[in-house]
Structures are given as structure tokens and as C-alpha cells.
Design a protein around this nucleic acid. Structure first.
Lengths: 212, 212
DNA sequence: TAATTTATGTCACTCGATGACAGATGACAA
DNA sequence: TTGTCATCTGTCATCGAGTGACATAAATTA
């Protein structure tokens, strides 16, 4: 890796660090891009060469989790029912979260708190989730052998996303709390749903196409 | 109603009309507040005395639907299971939508399309839904006799909101399409869920409090 | 060392949004 | 009708996010 790339990586993390520090101390809205840039001693224009918007900084941490989740889902065995695969992917993501050292965990939780306490960030966060949902739908559809445009895979993912939002939403002061909520929600979901609900109904007898 | 109030109402609707017209022809981002104000012949400053933000105009139409939904839910009989009450409230809302004359229906659909085709509006729309969700949770909790902070009412509403999003999301070119999707989703949900799932589990025998 | 990318700073600008102040306009009582 | 008062509106100034253009400085390669 050349000097150039190293330098870029350095300013990038410096910008993130400076930004989060300011966001957490003064609040997101009260912090200007100029202030962030000043701390890292770059021009405000440079900030926008690294990040498309001010929102992107706090959201990038959340986005990582979602990428992780998607990767885990893709790694689940094909035979596994879609909803189970989603839940297991989530378990694995939560496991990684629990494995974080205290500094990293604190940063994650603070960022989460920052997002949920800032209306503008909530909006952006929800859209991030909504975008990620599409990819989850694609993967679930693949597993079901259905099309991503159909309602069934969307239904499954929508239900899952709802659980995820409930886990992370509203002041999770601890990773343990998130895990605990998830366990409760998983039990709630599994107790509410009929076995096999997450696979599309096989065509019923009268409308089944004969094997040819 | 005095002249003053009539005048205010007139400029308000004029602003909405002008804004939507511009949004639909040139796109949301390409339309500036100055242009909207110019069409109605008021100062840009006045625009912001009527609307807190540019987003508020397209979102106000969606917000009306959500208020309607909440009102319908509150009107449902107390004995009805929460999820059924939510679905029936939605049916009623869709009924009102079908009862719209062609002009109003077209406007609603175009606005919906505008929102879903504009990233900034999607964000705001999702937050609107999320905010409204809290009120639905409060009402469902009341019906269940649980607290709004508990997971069960949230779970019920989250599932319902997911259905709602799927109905309206992605180019619903017709109110009939929305209705159709809703019917399918309702069938899907009712086929996937166990009877009585939307009422909190009564305490099981060993931990049940004796009647006193 | 010379030539060429590529990152950065500066400048100018657009647009959304807000506060302050003054003037216009409708509401209302004498 | 007139004068008072509340309120709506326009003007002006300002801030902050975000973008395009251009020149310069730094790193890369030859």
C-alpha cells in the first residue's frame, strides 16, 4: 500500500473520529462540517470528498452491521428455512457484537443512541434498512425458489426487519439488552407463527400442475 | 369564518397545488421553494410560515391517511382482537380511498409515486410511519391490557406496518392494485399466524396468579 | 529529474431554512 | 368612520449543507 493510500485512510478515520467526538459531545445538529474539518485540519470541501453527506458518518457504522448480516445470511446452509436462516444470521451478528472490546462496543452503542436521538438520522437510518431489506428479500427469494417481486419473500423479510428494529430501537444501553430482547422476540415470533409458514405454500391439489 | 382565515386557507391550498404540479412535472429535487412561492405570488419566506419544510407538502397527503387509519382503529370495537382491528381499520381506509373521485385518486397515487421515487422523501416517509407506529402501539397495548413499552404490542403493530408498507410500496398504479395486494397479504398473514397470537399469552398454569 | 496522475485548497454559488424588523392588512370597539 | 390592536407578509441578513470549477501541491511512474 502506497503512501497516498495510507494518507487517505488516515484522514478518513481522523474525520470519523473527530465527527463522532463532536456529535456525541455537542449533538449532531449542533456540529457543523466546518468544525469537523477544522479538527482534522482539512478544508470543508475535502470532507465531502470522503463522505457524500454529514449523515454518512454515523450511518456508516450501522451500515457495517447490515452488510455483516447479509453476509451471514448468504453463508447459511441452503436447506435451512428462510426465517430461521435470518434469525441465525442475526444471532451471529449479535455474537460478533458481544465479542467487541469495550471501546468498540461503547462506540457502537453511542452511535446507535445518537442515531435514535436525532430525527434526521432516524430518517436516514430507516432508509438504509429499507435498502438493505431489498437484498435480504433477494436472498430469501432465492432460497424459496420464488421471485423477489412476490409477496411471500417480502413478507418473511418484513417480519424479520421488524424484529431487528425492535432489538436496536430505543436506548439499548448494553449489548446484553439487545441480545435479551432478541431472544424474547424470537420466542414471541416462533410462538406466533405456524410451522413452515416461511416457505411458500406448495400449490394445492386442485391447481397443482401435473408433473410432465 | 373571517376573511383572514379564508385567505390563509386559499394560499395554503394554492401552495400545495403549485408545489405538487411542479414536483410532478420537474421532479421534487429540481423544484425550488422559490419557484413554488413565485407561482403563488408570495415571498419564499411565507412558504415556510405555512410549511415547516419542503418535504411537508407531499408528506401531508400520506399523513392524512395515517391519521385516518388511527381514527378507524380507535373506532373498532374493544372486543376485537388487535390484529383484526388493525386490518379492519386498514380495510376501511382503503374503502375511503376507493371512494375518491378520479381527480383525488390520481393525485393520491401520483404523490405516492413521487414519494417512492425520491430518496429524500422515502426517508421522511419512513419516519412518518415510524412515528405513527407509536400511536398504533399505544392503542393496541390499551386493547391488550399491556404497556406500550412491552414487546408484544410492538410485535403486532410491527407486523401490521410491514403489510402496510408492502401494499403502498413500489408503483401502485391503481387503488385496485393496493386493495388486491392487501387481500393477498391479509390471507398470507392469517395463514401464517396461529389463532390468538395477537393477544399476549395468558400466564401459564404454574405461574398464573390466583383470582383473589 | 521530468512527466503525469491524483488529492487538496480556494472561490463562487445554489438551495433549504431561520431570525429580526418594518410595513400592510384584516378584526374589532368606540 | 375612525383608531387601536393583533396578525400576516415582505425584505434583509445569515447560517449550514452540498457542488462545480480551477489552480496548486503532492505522490507516482518513467
Amino acid at each position: 500500500m502506497g503512501l497516498r493510500e495510507r494518507k487517505k485512510e488516515r484522514t478518513r478515520t481522523a474525520l470519523i473520529d473527530a465527527a463522532l467526538e463532536l456529535f456525541l459531545s455537542k449533538g449532531y445538529e449542533a456540529t457543523t462540517v466546518d468544525q469537523i474539518a477544522a479538527r482534522v485540519d482539512v478544508s470543508p470541501r475535502t470532507f465531502f470528498r470522503y463522505f457524500a453527506s454529514k449523515e454518512e458518518i454515523p450511518l456508516s457504522l450501522a451500515a457495517e452491521q447490515h452488510e455483516h448480516l447479509l453476509a451471514e445470511l448468504r453463508g447459511r446452509p441452503d436447506g435451512e428455512p428462510p426465517f430461521t436462516a435470518l434469525l441465525e444470521a442475526m444471532e451471529s451478528m449479535l455474537g460478533t457484537l458481544r465479542g467487541l472490546d469495550d471501546t468498540e462496543a461503547a462506540r457502537f452503542l453511542q452511535t446507535q443512541e445518537l442515531i435514535h436521538g436525532t430525527p434526521a438520522l432516524v430518517s436516514a437510518y430507516l432508509r438504509l434498512i429499507s435498502d438493505n431489506e431489498r437484498m435480504l428479500v433477494a436472498e430469501v427469494a432465492r432460497r424459496q425458489g420464488t421471485e423477489p417481486g412476490e409477496l411471500h419473500p417480502r413478507f418473511v423479510v418484513s417480519l424479520f426487519t421488524g424484529l431487528g428494529l425492535m432489538c436496536f430501537g430505543r436506548d439499548p444501553e448494553d449489548v446484553a439488552v439487545i441480545t435479551q430482547r432478541f431472544d424474547q422476540l424470537r420466542a414471541l415470533a416462533e410462538g406466533s407463527l405456524r410451522p413452515g409458514w416461511d416457505m411458500p405454500a406448495r400449490p394445492s391439489a386442485e391447481e397443482a400442475e401435473p408433473v410432465r
